[in-house]
Amino acid sequence: MEFLAKTIFMNTSTHLLNLLLSTLFITIMARVALPVPEALGGIPITGQSLAVLLVGLLLPFPWGGGAVLLYLLLGGLGLPVFAEGGSGWSSFSGGSGGFLIGFFIAALVMGLLRRRGWGQHLGYSLLANGLGTAVIVGSGLLWLAHLYGWGKAMEYGFYPFWPGAIVKILLGGFIAWSMLRNRKTA
């Protein structure tokens, strides 16, 4: 019985450490930004969604979603963790709100795909990152369409981001696969 208690505590403390480090990773990656010319929308492409997808696929379900939820709560409470140092609950009601909620949903989806071994095969890892990206973008576009209509949603939430999204899908798929290919699913 003592062994079981130690094992549970050790696994829980390891998961909590991973959750905190993953939240920090997302925060740091939100600061990594490639500028986009004003003619193409002017909205920088950040590493935020790449980090969310990696955390979701690399941590066992539901810990990746937990890390993203903690990230969102910290941002909502005013810590400048979102892209470009954004924060506050107003971030959820503005144009970024749908994307932020999509981060949480995508991380959960990625964790479920990990359970099915999707991170262990390059093709499935790429597909998982594509599906996670679709969840984030879809959630963001639905919210933007609600706020501004579909034309503006596509103009502000899709067209400036799709080239960067493809790069992040490829990069995230390869990174996750290289880290998970020899591991058991959890």
Rank of each mutant, 00 (worst) to 15 (best):
L100W: 02
L50E: 03
W118C: 02
L100H: 02
N18S: 13
G94M: 11
A30F: 07
T7M: 13
L108E: 04
N18H: 06
P60F: 03
N18T: 13
G117T: 10
A106P: 07
G98H: 04
P62Y: 01
M10Y: 01
H15Q: 11
Y71L: 13
L34M: 14
I45F: 00
L54S: 05
L53Y: 06
A51R: 05
F25K: 10
S90F: 07
L54E: 03
P35I: 13
L77Q: 05
L126D: 01
R114P: 07
G119C: 09
I28N: 01
G65N: 10
G123Q: 03
A51V: 15
G42S: 08
I43D: 10
L113T: 03
F25R: 06
W89M: 14
G94W: 04
A51M: 13
W89D: 09
T12G: 11
S22G: 12
P60N: 12
I8R: 00
G111D: 05
I26H: 00
N129A: 13
G123W: 08
L54H: 03
N129I: 11
I45N: 01
R116F: 10
N11G: 13
E38G: 11
F9T: 15
V109W: 02
G85C: 14
Y71D: 06
S49F: 06
L54C: 13
L127P: 02
G75V: 14
Q48P: 13
S49G: 09
G130S: 11
G42F: 00
I101V: 14
L17N: 09
L100A: 08
A107D: 04
L113W: 03
N129P: 11
T14E: 11
V109I: 11
L108S: 08
I8H: 00
K6M: 14
L34W: 00
F82L: 14
L16T: 03
L58S: 12
I105K: 01
G47C: 13
E84W: 04
V32Y: 00
F9D: 10
F103K: 06
G132M: 06
A107T: 05
H121N: 15
F82Y: 07
I28A: 10
N11Q: 08
L131K: 05
